[in-house]
């Protein structure tokens, strides 16, 4: 997708997120716009850097990095930026994504049906295995270090 098209979709998702932010978390549209504009700015910057730098690093990596950098305590204006962005509830950003994903998933339902119950069962075990496995290790180390 071209950066222009990405920007268009991003603005749409931004609007949907502002609606979610209003309906679900009672953050007014006007007060949330500055934060949303910053988020769109970070994302577009990441997309553009990806276009310019020829190394194969996905734009999400740049985006997370820029977001981290400009809110790191000590970065000029980080407190102001964090303040604006805190008006955009994190969960409000997730609802539009999953709405689009839900619409898209319909086309994979046939494939799921063909997969067979054994693989479905193994998939559930795999999800539980990775989650609990990581949680056990994290819990032990955090405890050992006295952080929890």
């Amino acid at each position: 997708m071209k950066p222009k098209d990405i920007f268009f979709v991003m603005v749409l998702v931004g609007i949907l997120s502002l609606v979610a932010n209003l309906v679900g978390y009672k953050n007014g549209i006007m007060e949330s716009i500055p934060g949303m504009v910053i988020l769109i700015g970070i994302s577009m910057l990441g997309v553009l850097i990806r276009q310019v730098i020829p190394i194969k690093i996905p734009s999400v990596a740049y985006i997370v990095l820029i977001g981290t950098l400009i809110t790191y305590p000590g970065f000029p204006g980080s407190a102001v930026i964090s303040g604006y962005i805190s008006k955009v509830n994190f969960l409000a950003l997730t609802t539009p994504i999953l709405a689009y994903a839900g619409i898209a998933i319909g086309k994979d339902l046939d494939a799921l049906k063909k997969t067979g119950w054994k693989i479905v069962l193994v998939a559930c075990i795999v999800f539980i295995g990775t989650y609990i496995g990581s949680a056990v290790i994290a819990q032990s180390i955090l405890k050992f270090m006295g952080l929890i």
Binding site: V9, S17, M36, L39, S43, V60, V88, Y100
Partner: peptide, 8 residues
């Protein structure tokens, strides 16, 4: 659609 969440 995921990009804004990544920025957040």
């Amino acid at each position: 659609t995921l990009l804004l969440l990544m920025a957040r």
